[in-house]
Design a protein around this nucleic acid. Structure first.
Lengths: 121, 121
DNA sequence: TTAATTGTACTAGTGCAAATAGTACAATCA
DNA sequence: TGATTGTACTATTTGCACTAGTACAATTAA
């Protein structure tokens, strides 16, 4: 059983359940959470975070549909056997967002190279 | 008086009033809305979009505090005399967001150059 | 065997912020 | 004079995230 440090921002417009999803997906992408690692149960995670189990359940449902975790009834919740696809999907999604943002900026009359330059600083 | 096409997404988690702000700031940055151009009154904009005038008022208040527009009581609402600073602020903000996102990706083990490469495609 | 833990499932209710509804006032302009 | 402008205010509604509470079956460990 691996404990997980989840960072929640209650001021954020991003819902708690989604912040949990993002945190765990990030740890998986970072290699901090490895395949088949058992993560805290819904109840334990909820208790750790001081939130309702239903909120965690919602996060775990999404993570499962994203292929990040596998839940085995009465056993517990585990990082999926193969997380490569899920990780690549997440990265792909991020890159698309960045590309869109850069394209927006180029429309505002800033050259592509200038944008890259300014990002580096 | 210049008519403005505002794109609203009611499914978005971004509030309507903020979407209006973003739309107008973008048009200013794109040069579609030029300095001193009169834009629709609060009531007219609300009517066009089928929303409450108070919502538009909130957007215009924010735009004014961002230096994008100037409101003259009983006269109307106009794009500010000088929009350069507001535009630069917006661009600066966008670049910072992009930089943060790229930094996140590098932590996941993707090289900086590879990210730039993938963005280009 | 028994008690604790697991995931699952469901309904009802709370809380907050966005958005609406409605009204009123003063200044300006055609 | 009547229409339009921005401004200002309060009350209400709505939608969604989140909470609260309960229940059940399967598994595990003492």
């Amino acid at each position: 059983m691996k404990q997980i440090m989840i960072n929640l921002d209650y001021q954020s417009r991003v819902p708690i359940y989604e912040q949990i999803v993002n945190n765990i997906e990030k740890y998986v992408a970072l290699g901090i959470l490895e395949a088949r690692t058992q993560i805290p149960s819904i109840r334990e995670m909820a208790s750790n975070l001081g939130i309702n189990p239903n909120t965690v359940k919602k996060s775990y449902d999404i993570l499962e549909s994203n292929g990040v975790i596998t839940t085995i009834s009465t056993k517990g919740t585990f990082i999926a056997d193969d997380t490569k696809k899920a990780t690549n999907d997440k990265i792909e999604k991020e890159i698309n967002i960045i590309r869109d943002k850069i394209n927006e900026l180029t429309k505002m009359g800033i050259g592509y190279d200038e944008i890259i330059e300014r990002i580096k600083k």
